[in-house]
Write a protein that binds this DNA or RNA. Structure first.
Lengths: 186, 186
DNA sequence: AGAAATCTACCTACTAAATGGTTGGTGAGA
DNA sequence: TCTCACCAACCATTTAGTAGGTAGATTTCT
C-alpha cells in the first residue's frame, strides 16, 4: 500500500524548498502526487498545517542525522564538516533549506511556522556549540574562539552558501566554502 | 511633485524583502503607496518588470555603497567590515536581502530575474576578491587564504547571517558573526 | 498667441485564472 | 456498520493583467 501522507510530505518539501512556501500551491502538489486537491485537505486540513508537518519531518530527519554524525565521527572538526555535507545535498539537488524558504516569508509567516523555524536554528546552534566546546577541550578547535558566536557563524555560512551556490557555483563552490569554514576553526 | 515610480520601487522593495517575491501582490503595493492597482501597471507593465527594476535599483545602490567604502576605508579588513555593515541595516529593519528573497523562488523565478541575481552575487564576489588580494599584498589579510574562495565565503556568511538573525538574534547576533568573520581574515 | 493634438498619470470596471478551502458524496476494508 | 481515503463539484477571494476613459499638462501647428 502506498503511504500517501508520506508522499505528500516528500513532494511538498521538494516544492517548498524549490520555489518557496507561497510559491507552491495545493494544485501543484496535487499534480505532483497524483491525487485531487480536495484529498490533500483530508491529510492536511490547511496549508499552514502542512507547513508545520513539513517542519516536523524535516527536524526529525536532521535530528537523526546529527546523532549519526556524533556516532560516526569522533573529531570535532570532522563532525562539523559532516554537518556541512548535509547542506551539500541540497546544493546537489538544487533545493534550498526548508527553514530558509520559510524565513523568507518573514512577517507574513504564520506564528507556529516562525516558531518552528526559530526552534530548528536554536537546536542546531546548541548542537554546534557543544561540538565546538568539545573540540576546544581536545585541542582540535582554536581555543580563542567563542563557541556560542562561532556556532551561529557556522550555521550562517552554510545557510548562505546553500542559498547562493544553489544557483551560482554548484556543489564545487559549496565544497570550497565548507573547506574554508573548517580551516577557520582549527 | 511626488515621484510615484520611486515610491512604488521603495515600497515594493520593502514588501519583497519582507515577505518574498511571490508573497507580495500588486494589491499590497497599491495599498502601501495609495494608488490603484491598475495604475501600478502603468508604471510597471508586469510583476516581472517590477522585479527587474527592483534589482536594477538595488544593484545601483550597492554599487554606490561599494565605491563609498573604497573611498572611506583604506584597510582591507576595515573595508570588508564596512561591507558587512551594509547587511546589518537589513537586520535592523527586519528585512532580508532582495537577492535572497528572489533566490528562494528558485526554478519558478523568471530567467531575467535569475540572471540579475547571479550578476549581483558575481559582482560582489569579484569586488571582495579584489579587496582581499589587496589586503594580502599589504599583509593585513592572511596570505594562506585563497581570495576567490574566501570572497564567496564572505558573501555566504553575511547572507546567511542576515537571513537567520533577522528572525533569531537580531543586530547583536549579526554583529557577533560579522566580528568573527573579520577575525578569521586576519 | 491660441487652438489642436498628444502625452502622462491616474481612474473605474472588468476578466480569466488560480488560490485555499468546503460540501456531500462513493467504494473498500475492518 | 463504521471509518478511511478519496473524489467531483463547488465556493469566495485573490491573483496578475486589460479595456476604456478622464483631467491636466505639454507639445505642435497655424
Amino acid at each position: 500500500m502506498r503511504d500517501t501522507r508520506a508522499e505528500l510530505l516528500a513532494e511538498a518539501e521538494t516544492l517548498v524548498r524549490g520555489r518557496g512556501y507561497s510559491g507552491f500551491s495545493y494544485a501543484d502538489l496535487s499534480e505532483a502526487v497524483g491525487i485531487r486537491k480536495a484529498s490533500i485537505h483530508h491529510h492536511f486540513r490547511t496549508k499552514e498545517d502542512l507547513g508545520f508537518a513539513l517542519m516536523g519531518a524535516y527536524e526529525a530527519r536532521y535530528d537523526a542525522a546529527l546523532d549519526a554524525i556524533l556516532a560516526g565521527h569522533p573529531d570535532a572538526v570532522a563532525r562539523i564538516e559532516a554537518y556541512g555535507r548535509l547542506y551539500l545535498g541540497g546544493v546537489e539537488q538544487g533545493l534550498g533549506c526548508l527553514c530558509a524558504a520559510l524565513a523568507t516569508e518573514g512577517e507574513a509567516l504564520p506564528e507556529r511556522l516562525r516558531a518552528a523555524v526559530v526552534g530548528f536554528f536554536d537546536r542546531h546552534i546548541a548542537w554546534l556549540e557543544a561540538v565546538l566546546r568539545q573540540g576546544q577541550a581536545e585541542g582540535s578547535v582554536r581555543a580563542a574562539l567563542d563557541p556560542a558566536a562561532q556556532a551561529r557563524f557556522v550555521v550562517a555560512t552554510l545557510e548562505g552558501a546553500l542559498m547562493m551556490e544553489r544557483l551560482l557555483g554548484g556543489p564545487r563552490a559549496f565544497a570550497g566554502t565548507l573547506a574554508a569554514l573548517c580551516a577557520s576553526l582549527r
